[in-house]
Design a protein around this nucleic acid. Structure first.
Lengths: 257, 257
DNA sequence: ACGCTATGCGTACAGTGTTCGCATCTAGAG
DNA sequence: CTCTAGATGCGAACACTGTACGCATAGCGT
């Protein structure tokens, strides 16, 4: 498919070369037709593809096609698919909104905002749940480092000592990632099923109730909130846990400083 | 390979059938030679394969070979590779040690123990990090439900109201999973590199120090504890965060009850 | 005008998950 | 003991994957 398109483009270039005034046409035709394949373009197109069609739709060939390029051309700018995925993860971290550390007393609000921003990014790109576990060294990505540095600043100005600030940050990050990736995995499954959440829940209800009969406590919890708007429930659950985590950190800060 | 083995077995059965006393030999030869392919056997062999050779070594064919069986035979007992993975995840949850809810006051100790047990299971099977994000509905697995029910009991007897106990449990689970899967992902990468952690750290040091120059706060944190035994550091980090989470939950319990 | 280097790409290969239809084995009924 | 129905194993085949290799080309510096 792209081979045909390329053939056409190539023919145009050839006929243009026959013109007596080559300078204008031969100088940089490439730039206009194809904005030059670059790592940035590959990565951001990969994110788009992942958002639109999900993780299993990302292959080197499909990505190449979207960029009007052969699959193997990508390997000039990216070592392999794993590296591409590392880059994609770092790209997503770039979307975070971490406030700068101004007034020390505001740290809980600032961390809360960062946490919600991370959750939102994960839910915007649910495929990241499947991918986070495969990437060993996220920590070295430039965006990850930039945002970590900013987040760390919040904990430092809050009064956490060096050596402890990192632990506090990791605690919050672990909570947010754990909570959000589980949400994202669920939402991915839902999306793959093609149903709305209501339909899905309804079709699952008989099996669920069957299996909840032997688990009274799970059943009680389900009955307590199982019929509210699920999106709202998820947000409340996230906020609840985040408050507990921040409470725990705050009390530690007060008792030690 | 297994085709040859099967051929031999088959020939034996045929020659045995010629004997005048067939009863002993023809009755149930199958049972002894091959313990009958069953879903349980498939799942537990898959776990062994994953532990020994890692996630990318798990294919239907390789798993079949280990069981002395063709790849496609597995599909009689398992719908999918995805389903196999769901089963495998549930199997791992079966290893958890969640104390039963006896004395209400002991809940922080009991939850702490459960948390460490979950972390240990994840680190014993590091591949689970890569796989957790792919499984949408872990919650319905029988082992997951059993352990959740037990964990929930801890929070109920602690005094958390129905509707809140689930939130408290999710908070702890999210923290533990977030922290442990990130550890596991790192350890998987390390294992794939074939190096010891010291070698690995040493070979990474120049690049790391280079990149830490522009991030003074990350650098400080690194210098504060970067030279201790990394395993110990990870355990301390985990314990620190867990204490904060439980503190937050405890203070919530005291202020509302 | 000429060569150098970076870039694109077609081909090929080994390996994947999964479907299909055929052989075989096992249990139970007559 | 025989016969049959259903469960189980399996080889071949298909569409698709990531990626190594080598050749063609483009654009730049001389």
């Amino acid at each position: 498919m792209y081979a045909i398109a390329y053939g056409v483009r190539y023919a145009e270039a050839m006929s243009a070369a026959k013109q007596p005034i080559p300078s204008v046409w031969t100088r940089r035709p490439r730039q206009k037709e194809r904005p030059a394949l670059t790592q940035d373009r590959i990565v951001s197109e990969a994110v788009k593809l992942l958002d639109e069609e999900g993780l299993e739709a990302l292959s080197m060939r499909s990505l190449g096609t979207r960029l009007g390029v052969g699959a193997t051309s990508l390997y000039r700018h990216v070592a392999n698919k794993d590296e591409l995925i590392e880059l994609v993860v770092d790209e997503v971290y770039g979307e975070l909104d971490v406030p700068s550390a101004d007034r020390p007393a505001d740290w809980p609000a600032a961390v809360t905002r960062s946490a919600h921003s991370l959750r939102a990014a994960i839910l915007r790109h649910p495929w990241i749940a499947s991918v986070l576990g495969q990437v060993g060294l996220v920590e070295l990505g430039p965006n990850v480092m930039r945002q970590s540095e900013r987040l760390l600043a919040l904990f430092h100005t809050a009064g956490f000592a060096p050596g402890e600030a990192d632990q506090a940050m990791s605690t919050v990050m672990a909570y947010v990632i754990g909570m959000s990736t589980s949400e994202a995995a669920y939402l991915s499954l839902l999306a793959r099923s093609g149903q709305t959440e209501q339909e899905w829940a309804e079709s699952l209800r008989p099996a669920a109730e069957q299996v909840l009969q032997d688990h009274p406590r799970l059943r009680d919890e389900h009955l307590a909130r199982g019929y509210d708007d699920p999106r709202r429930v998820r947000e409340e659950n996230f906020a609840y846990g985040l408050e507990r985590v921040l409470d725990g950190l705050r009390s530690r800060l007060e008792s030690s400083g």
